[in-house]
Amino acid sequence: MKAIFATAPGSPDVLQLRDIPKPELPSPHHLCVKLAAAGVNPIDTKLRTRPIYYPEKLPAILGCDGAGIVEETGKAVTRFKVGDEVYFCNGGIGDEPGCYAEYTALHEDYCAAKPANLGLQDSAALPLVLLAAWEALVGRASLQAGQTVLIHAAAGGVGHIAVQLAHHLGARIAVTVGDSKKAGLAHGLGAEKIINYREQDFVQETLNWTRSKGADVVFDTVGGETFLRSLNAVRIGGKLATLLATPLSLADTQLARLRNLSLCYELMLTPQVLKLHDERIRQRRILEEGAKLVEEGGLGVLVTHRLPLEQAAEAHRMIEQGGMVGKIILTMG
Rank of each mutant, 00 (worst) to 15 (best):
E102T: 00
Y197E: 10
P28K: 00
A116C: 11
H167N: 13
L58C: 05
T148V: 06
A133V: 05
A153V: 05
I194Y: 00
G159A: 10
G98I: 01
L228H: 06
E266I: 03
I173L: 04
V175M: 02
E199L: 14
A166T: 03
T7F: 03
E279H: 13
E72K: 10
E96P: 11
K193E: 09
L131P: 03
L258A: 15
I281F: 13
V301R: 02
P28Y: 08
H30L: 07
L243A: 00
I43V: 15
T78R: 13
Q144C: 12
D220H: 07
R79A: 11
W209E: 04
G323Y: 10
G74F: 01
P12F: 08
L269S: 10
L261G: 02
L118H: 06
I69R: 05
A112N: 06
H316N: 02
Y197G: 06
T221H: 03
A6C: 14
A145C: 12
E289T: 12
D252R: 01
P247K: 08
H160D: 00
G237T: 08
N232Q: 15
F219W: 07
E135P: 00
T7D: 04
I20V: 14
I286Q: 01
D109C: 07
Q200L: 08
R18C: 08
E135K: 00
Y100R: 08
L250Y: 13
I173V: 13
N90M: 13
T78H: 07
G300C: 11
Q121E: 15
Q16H: 09
D179F: 09
L276E: 15
I173M: 01
S212H: 12
L299R: 03
C64T: 14
L267N: 10
A136R: 01
V273C: 07
K114I: 00
M324Q: 12
I195C: 02
P9Q: 06
T226K: 02
I281Y: 12
L15G: 02
H160I: 06
A101F: 02
L302A: 07
V217C: 09
V40Y: 04
R48L: 08
A312D: 00
A36N: 06
L263H: 08
K34D: 11
A60C: 13
T49W: 14
S142Y: 11
T73I: 14
A251L: 10
K114G: 00
E288W: 12
I286M: 01
T210L: 03
L31D: 07
Q144T: 12
R282V: 10
R285D: 15
G159C: 09
V203N: 12
E266V: 10
